[in-house]
Lab assay of single mutants.
Amino acid sequence: SPPKPKTIVLPPNWKTARDPEGKIYYYHVITRQTQWDPPTWESPGDDAS
């Protein structure tokens, strides 16, 4: 059997959903933003550039 996916701790107000093909995506319940990649926690002042 395939390994279980890691449990991802989502930031507040993010949910997972499935598209009609069964792929998992993520959406923000307030902004209605959707994305394929797991959302990352906002870390103020932490600039990755």
Rank of each mutant, 00 (worst) to 15 (best):
S1K: 10
S1R: 08
S1G: 01
S1Y: 03
S1C: 12
S1E: 03
S1V: 07
S1P: 04
P2K: 10
P2F: 12
P2G: 13
P2D: 15
P2S: 15
P2H: 15
P2T: 15
P2C: 13
P2Q: 12
P2N: 15
P2E: 07
P3C: 04
P3D: 15
P3K: 15
P3N: 15
P3Y: 15
P3V: 15
P3M: 15
P3E: 15
P3W: 13
P3T: 14
P3I: 14
K4D: 00
K4C: 03
K4A: 01
K4R: 03
K4Y: 11
K4P: 05
K4Q: 03
K4L: 06
P5F: 14
P5M: 15
P5L: 14
P5N: 15
P5D: 14
P5V: 15
P5A: 14
P5Q: 12
P5Y: 10
K6P: 05
K6A: 11
K6D: 10
K6L: 05
K6F: 09
K6Y: 07
K6R: 11
K6H: 13
T7S: 14
T7A: 12
T7P: 05
T7D: 09
T7Q: 12
T7Y: 08
T7I: 08
T7G: 14
T7K: 15
T7E: 11
I8D: 08
I8Y: 10
I8G: 13
I8A: 10
I8S: 14
I8Q: 11
I8M: 15
I8E: 10
I8N: 14
I8F: 11
I8L: 15
V9Q: 10
V9P: 03
V9S: 10
V9C: 13
V9Y: 05
V9D: 15
V9H: 10
V9F: 13
V9R: 12
V9I: 14
V9T: 14
L10T: 04
L10A: 01
L10M: 06
L10E: 00
L10D: 04
L10K: 03
L10P: 03
L10V: 07
L10Q: 03
L10I: 11
L10W: 01
L10C: 08
L10S: 02
P11N: 05
P11K: 06
P11Q: 08
P11W: 01
P11V: 02
P11I: 01
P11L: 06
P11T: 02
P11H: 05
P12Y: 09
P12W: 06
P12L: 07
P12E: 14
P12S: 08
P12C: 01
P12F: 05
P12V: 08
P12I: 04
N13Q: 09
N13R: 10
N13W: 09
N13E: 03
N13P: 02
N13Y: 14
N13G: 08
N13H: 11
N13I: 03
W14G: 01
W14T: 00
W14F: 00
W14Q: 01
W14A: 01
W14Y: 03
K15Q: 06
K15H: 09
K15Y: 15
T16P: 05
T16D: 04
T16F: 07
T16R: 11
T16V: 15
T16W: 11
T16S: 15
T16L: 13
T16N: 02
A17V: 07
A17H: 02
A17M: 11
A17P: 02
A17D: 10
A17R: 12
A17S: 08
A17Y: 09
A17I: 08
A17K: 09
R18D: 01
R18A: 04
R18F: 04
R18G: 01
R18S: 03
R18I: 10
R18P: 03
R18N: 13
D19K: 02
D19M: 08
D19Q: 04
D19C: 02
D19N: 12
D19G: 07
D19E: 06
D19F: 00
D19V: 05
D19T: 14
D19I: 03
P20Q: 12
P20D: 09
P20R: 12
P20W: 05
P20E: 10
P20L: 07
P20T: 12
P20S: 10
P20N: 12
E21G: 12
E21M: 11
E21W: 05
E21K: 14
E21F: 09
E21I: 06
E21L: 04
E21Q: 07
E21Y: 03
G22Y: 01
G22E: 00
G22P: 00
G22W: 07
G22S: 06
G22D: 09
G22C: 01
G22K: 04
G22Q: 01
G22F: 02
K23D: 04
K23M: 03
K23N: 03
K23P: 00
K23R: 12
K23Q: 06
K23G: 07
K23E: 04
K23L: 04
K23V: 06
I24A: 07
I24V: 04
I24T: 07
I24K: 04
Y25I: 05
Y25K: 03
Y25F: 07
Y25H: 04
Y25D: 04
Y25W: 00
Y25S: 02
Y25L: 05
Y25V: 05
Y26W: 04
Y26A: 01
Y26F: 06
Y26C: 01
Y26T: 02
Y26E: 00
Y26I: 01
Y26P: 01
Y26M: 02
Y26K: 02
Y27F: 04
Y27V: 08
Y27C: 03
Y27Q: 09
Y27H: 06
Y27E: 06
Y27W: 08
Y27R: 07
H28D: 07
H28V: 00
H28C: 01
H28G: 00
H28F: 00
H28P: 00
H28A: 00
H28N: 12
V29K: 07
V29I: 07
V29M: 13
V29F: 01
V29S: 12
V29E: 14
V29H: 08
V29T: 14
I30A: 06
I30F: 05
I30Y: 07
I30P: 10
I30K: 09
I30G: 06
I30N: 11
I30H: 10
I30D: 08
I30L: 10
I30V: 08
I30S: 05
T31K: 02
T31I: 00
T31D: 02
T31H: 01
T31Q: 02
T31C: 00
T31L: 02
T31G: 00
T31A: 02
T31P: 01
R32K: 14
R32Q: 11
R32T: 00
R32V: 00
R32P: 02
R32E: 08
R32H: 09
R32I: 00
Q33I: 03
Q33A: 09
Q33T: 09
Q33P: 00
Q33F: 00
Q33C: 07
Q33L: 04
Q33E: 13
Q33D: 08
T34D: 01
T34K: 03
T34Q: 09
T34N: 04
T34V: 10
T34I: 09
T34G: 05
Q35H: 10
Q35P: 03
Q35F: 02
Q35N: 01
Q35I: 04
Q35C: 05
Q35A: 08
Q35D: 01
Q35S: 11
Q35T: 11
Q35E: 03
W36P: 14
W36T: 11
W36C: 10
W36Q: 09
W36D: 12
W36G: 09
W36I: 14
W36S: 15
D37N: 06
D37C: 10
D37H: 13
D37F: 02
D37L: 08
D37G: 08
D37M: 08
D37T: 14
D37P: 04
D37E: 13
D37W: 07
P38F: 09
P38K: 09
P38E: 04
P38V: 10
P38T: 05
P38Y: 07
P38D: 01
P38S: 04
P39S: 02
P39D: 01
P39W: 00
P39M: 00
P39C: 01
P39L: 00
P39Q: 02
P39H: 02
P39V: 00
P39Y: 02
P39R: 00
P39F: 01
T40K: 05
T40Q: 15
T40Y: 09
T40H: 14
T40L: 10
T40A: 14
T40M: 12
T40N: 13
T40C: 14
T40F: 07
W41R: 13
W41S: 15
W41P: 11
W41T: 15
W41H: 14
W41A: 13
W41Q: 15
W41F: 15
W41N: 11
E42G: 11
E42M: 04
E42T: 05
E42K: 10
E42I: 07
E42A: 09
E42L: 04
E42H: 14
E42V: 09
S43I: 10
S43A: 11
S43Q: 13
S43M: 10
S43D: 13
S43P: 05
S43Y: 07
S43R: 10
P44V: 07
P44T: 10
P44S: 08
P44R: 11
P44L: 09
P44C: 04
P44Y: 12
P44G: 09
P44I: 04
P44M: 12
P44K: 09
P44N: 08
P44F: 02
G45T: 09
G45K: 12
G45E: 12
G45P: 15
G45N: 13
G45R: 12
G45Y: 13
G45D: 11
G45I: 14
G45L: 13
G45A: 13
D46F: 05
D46T: 06
D46K: 08
D46H: 14
D46Q: 05
D46M: 06
D46V: 11
D46C: 06
D46N: 10
D46S: 08
D46Y: 04
D47L: 10
D47R: 09
D47Q: 15
D47V: 11
D47I: 05
D47F: 04
D47M: 07
D47T: 11
A48K: 13
A48C: 13
A48M: 14
A48V: 08
A48I: 13
A48P: 13
S49H: 06
S49C: 04
S49P: 13
S49D: 02
S49V: 02
S49R: 08
S49I: 10
S49T: 12
S49Y: 08
S49L: 08
